[in-house]
Structures are given as structure tokens and as C-alpha cells.
């Protein structure tokens, strides 16, 4: 789905004149919209930031399987079950593409996984919220995927070639995700009294966390400025959040649902909606590990990893035996 950019490791943005010739040549290539490829020279900070960002993005896809996976066995029709399963499977695929992109930077998937499981690397805060009713499957697709797409579409133009190519494939595959979510919401919003209530309740619970997905305001952040200079971040957090609100409010109106924000109103002058900031204290609590589901999410990933060890080792051992047997035959 998408990774929140919380911290960067850069030390401010240098001007071209301050750079040594190698770095300057690198920055000029980026300015000219050249793609940086794995074997090209790159500054250490660029590599570190990318590993962190792509890694977080990959982890978000993997942990993001869990809240929706929570409803696969309770999906109300065979078709809904198939659609949801296909969607959650796509998230696994997207995690895989992203890990592979990060691997071209010289880090292994196993190491990134260990860093996720130990809590050293982060994933998007949104997946620490519980999915409590079937309408949450609608809300997650509509709002969470909707917010993710805002971020992912511009990342198709990011400067690092493998990352950009992964994003192209991901965006192509994700095109049905938000629609299936909205489709569920339409069914619920036009359904029985109980379904309507579920739909409104889901919007109430996911609105704030969806706004948080873009991260806190980064207007004055040096780190964000550096990431934008490197074109590994394409828009400011506030810019994307505004775009999301502008797009989503009319969609909620169409459903006949109420966005849980008393201050929400159209600002003619700005040509945008004014809206209330989400609860940033809650956001930082979730980041610290105090979200409603942080513990369960990491437990689930750790369990899958630990209990899968014998499988990974078993198949590897068998492959080694087969290779040895083939070598034996060749030698004879």
C-alpha cells in the first residue's frame, strides 16, 4: 500500500555548487529525469533513504494483508470472498515486488523481514487499526487504498529505476482495489438499516487514520526537501492530504454518508475543502506501538515467520540434495 515518511537521514539539501563533482553529476541526472539504476554511483544517503522507504512500503503491504485477511473467511458471498482474496493476494505480490526493488540496493529480504519483526523498521500506521464489520472491507478499499494511490501514482516517476518500475506494476494492479471497496460501500449504504449503520461506523473509524496516512505536515522539514530533491518523494504530505480530502468528500456525499468532521466545508477562495487535522497525538501513540492492533499484527507476522522456518529450510535442503545428485550423475 504505502509507506509513511516519518524520518529521513539526510542532513539538509546542498546546492549544486556545494557538491563534489560526482554528487553533482548524480543530482544533475536526477534533475534531467534520468533514472538511477542499481550499478550507478549514488550518495550513501540516497541509498539509505531508499532502503528505508522501499522497505517500509514493502512491510506495509505485508502487514496490510492482515486487517483485510481478517474477513476472508467471513465474506458474505462466494464472489465477495474471491474478490477480497484476490485483493489481499495482490498486496502480498506488491510486497514481493518492493522487497525485490530494495534488494537491488544490496539489502536482503531476510534482513528487512527481521528488522520488521523486531520492530526496528516501521510500516504504515493505518494497519494497526482493527476491521470490525464487513463495511470495514469497503472503507479500507475506498479510503485506505484511495489514500495509498495518491502517493503511489506520482512515485511511478521516482528517480530510482527499480522502484519506479515496481510502482508502475503495482499501480496497474491496484486499479481495481479502490473500486471494489467503493462497490462494497455502495451496497452497504443502499442496503438495510443495519448495513447503513455499519457503513457510517466504518467511515467514522477510518476517516482520521486515513488522513494520518500522509504523515504529519512536512512543510518545514529538511528531510522531506532532500527526498524531494532526490525525487524519491514527489509531493508534500499536506498537498496529498488535501487532494485526498477533495476527492473523497463528494464520494461520501454520493453514498449519503457523513464525514466525521464538523469543520468540513468547501472553501471557494482556495478551491479546496477546509478540514480538521486528525488527532496527531493518537498518530504518534500508534507509531510508538500503542495502536489498537500493533501487538497482534507483529505477533501474527512473527508467528508466520517462526512457524515457516522448517518449510523454508526443508525445501532448501531438498534443492541442495537434488543439485548434489545431478552433479554426481554428471561426474559419472
Amino acid at each position: 500500500m504505502y509507506a509513511q515518511m516519518i524520518k529521513s537521514t539526510g542532513e539538509g539539501v546542498k546546492s549544486l555548487d556545494e557538491m563534489d563533482p560526482q554528487e553533482r553529476a548524480f543530482q544533475e541526472r536526477i534533475n534531467a529525469n534520468d533514472k538511477i539504476e542499481p550499478k550507478d554511483w549514488m550518495p550513501d544517503g540516497y541509498r539509505k533513504n531508499l532502503i528505508r522507504q522501499i522497505g517500509q512500503h514493502a512491510h506495509s503491504e505485508i502487514v496490510g494483508q492482515l486487517p483485510e485477511g481478517n474477513w476472508i473467511t467471513r465474506a458474505p458471498t462466494l464472489e465477495r470472498k474471491a474478490i477480497l482474496l484476490a485483493k489481499v493476494q495482490d498486496e502480498a505480490g506488491h510486497g514481493l515486488y518492493l522487497y525485490c526493488a530494495a534488494e537491488t540496493l544490496g539489502v536482503s529480504r531476510d534482513q528487512m523481514t527481521r528488522d520488521l519483526l523486531s520492530g526496528k523498521m516501521k510500516y504504515s500506521s493505518i494497519f494497526n487499526y482493527p476491521t470490525l464489520t464487513w463495511a470495514d472491507m469497503g472503507a479500507v478499499g475506498w479510503l485506505v487504498d484511495g489514500a495509498a494511490i495518491m502517493n503511489q501514482v506520482p512515485l511511478q516517476r521516482t528517480s530510482y529505476g527499480p522502484y519506479a518500475r515496481a510502482m508502475v506494476r503495482i499501480c496497474k494492479e491496484e486499479s481495481f482495489h479502490q473500486r471494489q471497496g467503493y462497490d462494497i460501500m455502495m451496497k452497504m449504504a443502499n442496503g438495510t438499516e443495519a448495513q447503513r449503520k455499519m457503513a457510517q461506523d466504518a467511515l467514522n473509524r477510518f476517516w482520521g487514520p486515513s488522513l494520518m496516512m500522509f504523515g504529519p505536515s512536512d512543510e518545514n522539514s529538511v528531510h522531506s526537501a532532500q527526498s524531494m530533491a532526490w525525487k524519491i518523494k514527489m509531493n508534500s504530505n499536506d498537498e496529498l492530504r488535501q487532494k485526498f480530502v477533495d476527492q473523497t468528500v463528494p464520494q461520501a456525499e454520493y453514498l449519503g454518508l457523513t464525514v466525521p468532521d464538523d469543520t468540513l466545508r468547501w472553501n471557494e477562495e482556495r478551491g479546496h475543502y477546509d478540514f480538521a487535522q486528525p488527532d496527531w497525538d493518537e498518530f504518534f501513540d500508534v507509531l510508538k506501538g500503542n495502536g489498537p492492533c500493533n501487538t497482534e499484527r507483529l505477533e501474527a507476522r512473527n508467528k508466520a515467520w517462526d512457524e515457516g522456518r522448517w518449510v523454508r529450510e526443508g525445501l532448501l535442503a531438498h534443492a541442495a540434495k537434488k543439485r548434489a545428485a545431478a552433479a554426481q550423475v554428471a561426474a559419472e
Binding site: E37, P38, K39, D40, M42, D44, R47, K48, Y97, L98, C100, A101, E103, T104, L105, G106, V107, G161, P162, R165, A166, R169
Partner: peptide, 11 residues
């Protein structure tokens, strides 16, 4: 999706 080549990194 990435690239069939990689760069090495000691970090």
C-alpha cells in the same frame, strides 16, 4: 519488478 542487477553496499 526490480532489475536483474544490483549494486553492493556495506551499510
Amino acid at each position: 519488478m526490480s532489475s536483474p542487477e544490483s549494486s553492493s553496499y556495506d551499510g
